[in-house]
């Protein structure tokens, strides 16, 4: 296994449901140990891509290589390398936490003594060990999301696919999950994460890609993407809408700000975020 080949390569993947083209010849690769975020609006094709990489649905066309080897040729071997955190919570609500994890361990063919050890390890990791005998249906939303992550880590996968892992959580719990995800990456896992939250991608990702209507637009580091627009932005609020202007330096932005405020227009100055980049690309695609 060569160390410099990408961990995951996606080559010209296409998928059509009935008449909806969910993915249109997508290609990109993720480096070993990288945290790669996929950003896109509702219906962009994020979950479809995750499901293909998890081996849940086959693509119509294209290839996926893991460590340079064909994923679909030896799918059950590669499935052991992959942990999946799905967008919809699919735990067994009537079973307790340990039972959920035990079943996962069995269907991933883990040795019995390893299963026992891992249950403790992953539950401690996500801070749910105390709750191990509780039924899953009695957990809060944030706990369920954490348990999903614990379950995906049970069989110690080298790849983790996270489909909107923090959706619907309060900011505090979201931050705790970010810490967990970062820790998992530091232990050596390669992570693909989808999200609607720009801040999440900006905080976590080494690189981000925008996906829109089944196509990938740009792929780069968050800071490079932000730099394409500049560093500072001013928002100008007119009667009809908000206009945003981007600047390379703070001085230039402040100069412009002064001009507008003299005209009694409401203007504010701020740093450029990934959200600005997102809207620029998504809008130009519309």
């Amino acid at each position: 296994m060569s160390q410099n080949c990408p961990k995951i390569s996606v080559e010209n993947i296409s998928k059509t449901f009935d008449r909806i083209k969910a993915l249109k010849s997508l290609s990109f690769s993720i480096k070993r140990g990288e945290l790669f975020a996929l950003l896109g609006p509702n219906g962009a094709g994020k979950t479809t891509l995750i499901k293909i990489l998890a081996g849940i649905i086959p693509p119509d066309k294209g290839k996926v290589l893991i460590d340079g080897k064909d994923f679909f040729k030896d799918i059950s071997k590669f499935k052991k390398e992959i942990g999946v955190v799905p967008q919809t919570i699919n735990l067994e609500p009537e079973l307790n936490l340990e039972e959920n994890l035990l079943i996962h361990g069995l269907i991933y063919k883990m040795p019995f003594n390893k299963i026992k050890k891992q249950i403790k390890k992953v539950l401690l990791f996500v801070d749910l060990w105390e709750r191990r005998k509780h039924r899953v249906k009695n957990l809060s939303g944030g706990m369920k999301r954490r348990l999903l992550i614990a379950r995906a880590l049970m069989h110690e996968p080298s790849i983790l696919l996270l489909d909107e892992p923090t959706v619907g959580l309060d900011p505090q719990i979201r931050r705790r999950l970010w810490e967990l995800i970062k820790k998992i990456q530091l232990k050596g896992a390669t992570i693909l994460l989808t999200t609607h939250y720009m801040e999440e991608a900006e905080q976590l990702a080494d690189r981000v890609a925008f996906i829109h209507k089944g196509k990938l637009t740009v792929i780069d580091t968050p800071s490079n993407l932000i730099a394409t627009l500049g560093q500072y932005a001013i928002d100008i609020y007119t009667k009809e809408k908000r206009i945003t202007k981007y600047f390379q330096s703070r001085e230039k932005a402040e100069k412009e700000l002064l001009l507008y405020s003299r005209e009694n227009t409401l203007v504010t100055l701020r740093r450029i975020t990934l959200e600005d980049v997102f809207f620029k690309y998504i809008r130009s695609e519309l």
Binding site: A54, I56, I82, I89, E92, I103, H104, I107, K109
Partner: peptide
């Protein structure tokens, strides 16, 4: 309803 069948789809079971 529970979508837990997806777990079996992800898993390496025959």
């Amino acid at each position: 309803y529970l979508k837990s069948f997806e777990e079996f789809k992800c898993a390496p079971i025959s």
